[in-house]
């Protein structure tokens, strides 16, 4: 009997560039980015979907890339923190993080940025959160206004041990207001 295949060719479109990779079936999207493509912007904080440091956008939605097996995401469109700026021009969210000092060690930052982008889109599409007033949630798919409380609730999957939360929320508000 043939031994089972343990690798596959996986195609990922990352920040607009197509990559074809031979990957171990155990390889996560996060490790594919970091170890195979040299895109170390997305961080590994826990490898268990508990911290959010590895957050990237997969097909436009924010997700913990440490939890995704790359082989199951053949053909996916991935946006990482490296794909946010346009050349030298920072994305407004990146500029706001800089201005608001929305980080200290910077290790959670790529995840916070990607998560914020995904979060803004979710609220824009009318997805309610735990703290959305029922009356507003009933209006879905009308956009949910992003109050500071909404931002805090929706960003709570992204831990920051340096405690930059207040500044991160201020930075996100600078962009959403």
């Amino acid at each position: 009997m043939e031994p089972p295949e343990t690798t596959s060719t996986v195609t990922l479109r990352v920040n607009g560039v197509q990559h074809s990779l031979d990957l171990d079936h155990r390889t996560t999207v996060l490790d594919a980015l970091r170890e195979h493509l040299g895109l170390t912007g997305a961080k590994k904080g826990c490898d268990h979907a508990q911290c959010g440091a590895c957050t990237v956008l997969v097909d436009g939605r924010r997700t913990n890339s440490c939890l995704l097996l790359a082989v199951a995401h053949d053909g996916a469109e991935v946006t990482t923190v490296e794909g946010l700026a346009e050349g030298d021009a920072l994305h407004p969210l990146q500029a706001a993080f800089l201005e608001r000092d929305g980080f200290q060690c910077g290790y959670c930052t790529p995840g916070q940025l990607c998560s914020a982008l995904g979060m803004i889109a979710e609220a824009g599409a009318g997805a309610p959160s735990l703290v959305t007033p029922p009356a507003e949630a009933a209006l879905s798919p009308a956009p949910v206004p992003l109050s500071p409380e909404e931002i805090r609730e929706r960003m709570s999957g992204n831990l920051c041990r340096c405690g930059a939360y207040g500044n991160i929320v201020a930075a996100i508000e600078d962009v959403t207001r």
């Binding site: 997305a42 923190v81 920072l90 990146q94 800089l98 980080f103």
Partner: peptide, 19 residues
């Protein structure tokens, strides 16, 4: 002053020990 390495940190180019 804004952090001197801030740009690297928000663009994901700052390299940490495992990178």
């Amino acid at each position: 002053p804004v952090r001197l390495e801030g740009r690297e940190k928000v663009t994901g180019t700052a390299r940490y020990a495992a990178e």
